[in-house]
Computed example of a mutant assay.
Amino acid sequence: MATRLNPYISFDGTARQAMESYRDTFGGTLTLSTFGDFGGAPAELADKIMHAMLETPSGFTLMASDTPPGMEYKPGTNISVSLSGDDDAELRGYWEKLSAGGQVGVPLEKQMWGDVFGMCVDRFGITWMVNIAGTPA
């Protein structure tokens, strides 16, 4: 898998509706994962979107989620840049450079979905998410 860079939008409980609308607009394949899909989510979060990805015939990739518990939803700052792929060395190199002089919100480490993930705000105020795909079982 090649490394990809794309926007990642946070919503306040409307991620499913927004992503379905974007699918209707751009076409393509929409994949939705809820907080409940990974177990342990409280009932009020079970159907909220933990991760959505729209891949269009034109080559656009748009990702989104509902704002997770404990994180502030603030319109105007709800778009991040996502770097994802399976090249561990390449993505860790990007992480080191992007997080240097910035603020790490989520350390780059293995997550419950099996991938290595981290989130930081770089020294210029841009939020970055880095996801390194886990090794298939």
Score class of each variant (00 low, 15 high):
residue 1 M to T: 03
residue 1 M to A: 12
residue 2 A to T: 12
residue 3 T to P: 05
residue 4 R to C: 15
residue 4 R to H: 13
residue 5 L to E: 11
residue 9 I to S: 09
residue 10 S to V: 14
residue 11 F to T: 04
residue 11 F to C: 04
residue 12 D to E: 14
residue 14 T to W: 14
residue 14 T to F: 08
residue 15 A to I: 00
residue 15 A to T: 05
residue 16 R to I: 08
residue 16 R to Q: 06
residue 17 Q to R: 09
residue 17 Q to Y: 11
residue 20 E to N: 09
residue 21 S to N: 12
residue 22 Y to W: 08
residue 23 R to L: 07
residue 24 D to G: 01
residue 24 D to N: 06
residue 24 D to L: 06
residue 29 T to V: 12
residue 29 T to I: 14
residue 31 T to L: 08
residue 35 F to N: 02
residue 37 D to R: 13
residue 37 D to A: 13
residue 38 F to I: 02
residue 38 F to C: 09
residue 38 F to S: 05
residue 40 G to C: 04
residue 40 G to F: 08
residue 41 A to R: 02
residue 42 P to Y: 10
residue 45 L to W: 15
residue 45 L to I: 12
residue 46 A to M: 14
residue 47 D to F: 10
residue 47 D to W: 06
residue 47 D to C: 05
residue 48 K to H: 15
residue 48 K to N: 10
residue 50 M to S: 11
residue 51 H to E: 01
residue 52 A to D: 01
residue 52 A to E: 09
residue 55 E to C: 08
residue 57 P to Y: 09
residue 58 S to N: 11
residue 59 G to P: 13
residue 60 F to S: 12
residue 61 T to E: 02
residue 61 T to M: 14
residue 62 L to S: 00
residue 62 L to Q: 03
residue 64 A to T: 06
residue 64 A to D: 14
residue 68 P to S: 06
residue 68 P to L: 03
residue 72 E to Q: 15
residue 72 E to N: 14
residue 73 Y to A: 07
residue 73 Y to V: 04
residue 73 Y to D: 10
residue 74 K to R: 14
residue 75 P to V: 01
residue 76 G to M: 04
residue 78 N to C: 00
residue 80 S to N: 15
residue 81 V to C: 12
residue 82 S to A: 15
residue 82 S to G: 14
residue 83 L to E: 07
residue 85 G to Y: 11
residue 87 D to L: 08
residue 89 A to Y: 09
residue 89 A to I: 15
residue 90 E to L: 08
residue 90 E to Y: 11
residue 92 R to P: 01
residue 95 W to G: 03
residue 96 E to S: 10
residue 96 E to P: 05
residue 97 K to T: 08
residue 97 K to L: 06
residue 98 L to M: 12
residue 99 S to R: 07
residue 100 A to F: 06
residue 100 A to Y: 01
residue 100 A to S: 07
residue 101 G to I: 00
residue 101 G to M: 01
residue 103 Q to M: 11
residue 104 V to P: 08
residue 104 V to E: 02
residue 105 G to M: 11
residue 105 G to I: 09
residue 105 G to R: 10
residue 109 E to N: 11
residue 111 Q to C: 11
residue 111 Q to P: 03
residue 113 W to C: 02
residue 116 V to Y: 04
residue 117 F to R: 04
residue 117 F to C: 02
residue 120 C to D: 03
residue 121 V to P: 06
residue 121 V to H: 11
residue 124 F to V: 08
residue 124 F to W: 12
residue 125 G to M: 05
residue 125 G to L: 07
residue 125 G to Q: 03
residue 127 T to L: 13
residue 127 T to C: 11
residue 128 W to K: 04
residue 129 M to P: 00
residue 130 V to S: 01
residue 131 N to D: 09
residue 134 G to P: 01
residue 134 G to T: 00
residue 137 A to K: 13
residue 137 A to G: 15
